[in-house]
C-alpha cells in the first residue's frame, strides 16, 4: 500500500493534475464522476479478458473435466492435476518451465539490446539508406511464414554440422533463431521513442567529451527505459508462447518449452489430457504476469520525467 517514488513521479505526468493530498478527501459524487467510471471500465475489461480463462482455471481444478461443455464452473476443487504435473517423470514440467524461462529471458534481453542499438542508429545517425532500411526491416517480417519451418530446419541442421551446440534440439540454437526477429517492429517502436528524446541531451554530453558509445549506454538507454521494458515484455511473451519453430527444432523431452510440452498433453491422438493441460497452462501464465507486474513501474512509472525536462 505504500506509495513508491515511481508512483509519485507519475502523478506529475498524469493527464489530470490533482495533488495526491486530495485523494482521501474526494467527495462521493466527485469520486463517482472522476474515478467511478474508470473502475467500471476496469471491471468490465477484467471480465472480458478473464472469463474464458476462468474456465481454464476451473478445468484445472477438476480432475475429470474437459474444455468444452462444462458450464458449471468450479464444481470440484482439487489440486490433483497440479500434483500430476510435477510428479510424472515422463512429463518433466519443471524442466519445461525452466527451459522456457531461460529461453524467454535470454531472448528478450538480447532482443532489447540489439533493437536499441539499431534504433539508436536510425534515430541519431544520418546515413544513406536509412529510410529504405527502416522500411525493409518491417517488410521482411511481413513475409508469410508458411515455409519457415522447413527452411529453418534445414538451416539449423547445416549449422549443427559445424557447431553441434547451435544445431537442432539445442536451446542456444533456438534463441539464435528467435533473435533473427530482434530487428523489425521492435526497432520501430524504439525508434519512435528515441526520437522524442531531445538531441540537445546528446549534444550537451558531447561537449562534456563523451563518445557515442558512452552517450548511448549511459545516457540514452536510461531515458528510454519505458520502451525497453515494453519491448522486453513483448519479446518475452512472444518467445514463451511460440510453438511452431520450437516444436520443429526441439525434440528431447527434457529440452522442450512449455508451449510444446503442453501441446503434447492434448495431441496424443485421441487420448487427450485436458485437465492436466489446463493446470500447466495456468502456471505458464504466471511468469508473464509477474514480469509485467515488475516492469509496470518502468513502463508507466515516469522514471524519465525528471531527466527529459
Amino acid at each position: 500500500m505504500s506509495i513508491d517514488i515511481s508512483e509519485t513521479l507519475a502523478v506529475e505526468r498524469g493527464s489530470e493534475p490533482a495533488p495526491p493530498v486530495v485523494r482521501p478527501r474526494m467527495s462521493g459524487r466527485k469520486w463517482l464522476r472522476e474515478m467511478g467510471w474508470r473502475h467500471l471500465i476496469g471491471i468490465a475489461v477484467v471480465i472480458f479478458a478473464a472469463f474464458p480463462l476462468v474456465y481454464v482455471l476451473s478445468a484445472s481444478l477438476n480432475p475429470t473435466g474437459t474444455l468444452t461443455g462444462s458450464n458449471a464452473l468450479f464444481r470440484s476443487l482439487s489440486l490433483e492435476n497440479y500434483v500430476a504435473l510435477f510428479t510424472d517423470p515422463n512429463r518433466p514440467y519443471a524442466a519445461w518451465f525452466a527451459n522456457t524461462m531461460v529461453i524467454g529471458l535470454v531472448t528478450s534481453v538480447a532482443t532489447v539490446f540489439l533493437g536499441a542499438l539499431a534504433a539508436y542508429a536510425f534515430s541519431r545517425l544520418r546515413f544513406t539508406g536509412r529510410r529504405v532500411g527502416l522500411l525493409s526491416l518491417i517488410l521482411v517480417q511481413m513475409f508469410p511464414q508458411l515455409l519457415a519451418v522447413v527452411a529453418i530446419y534445414l538451416l539449423l541442421r547445416g549449422i549443427g554440422d559445424v557447431f553441434p551446440v547451435l544445431g537442432l534440439d539445442s536451446q542456444i540454437g533456438i534463441i539464435l533463431v528467435y533473435l533473427g526477429g530482434a530487428l523489425g517492429v521492435n526497432t520501430y517502436l524504439m525508434y519512435g521513442f528515441f526520437n522524442t528524446i531531445p538531441t540537445s541531451i546528446d549534444e550537451a554530453a558531447k561537449i562534456d567529451g563523451a563518445g557515442h558509445a558512452r552517450i548511448f549506454f549511459t545516457i540514452i538507454l536510461r531515458l528510454v527505459a519505458p520502451i525497453l521494458a515494453v519491448v522486453g515484455l513483448l519479446s518475452f511473451i512472444a518467445t514463451t508462447s511460440e510453438f511452431v519453430i520450437a516444436s520443429t527444432l526441439l525434440s528431447s523431452n527434457e529440452k522442450l518449452t512449455l508451449a510444446v510440452g503442453l501441446f503434447r498433453l492434448v495431441s496424443n491422438e485421441t487420448n487427450t489430457n485436458y485437465p492436466v493441460f489446463a493446470a500447466g497452462a495456468v502456471l505458464a501464465a504466471i511468469p508473464v504476469m509477474a514480469l509485467f507486474l515488475w516492469l509496470q513501474k518502468y513502463i508507466v512509472g515516469g522514471l524519465t520525467a525528471g531527466a527529459v525536462k
Binding site: 516444436s247 520443429t248 525434440s251 523431452n253 503434447r264 491422438e269
Partner: peptide, 16 residues
Amino acid sequence: VVVQDFESIDDNLTTQ
C-alpha cells in the same frame, strides 16, 4: 528414442 507428436510424425519424416 525421439518423442514426437503422433500426428506430425508423417510430415516430419517426409521433410526430414
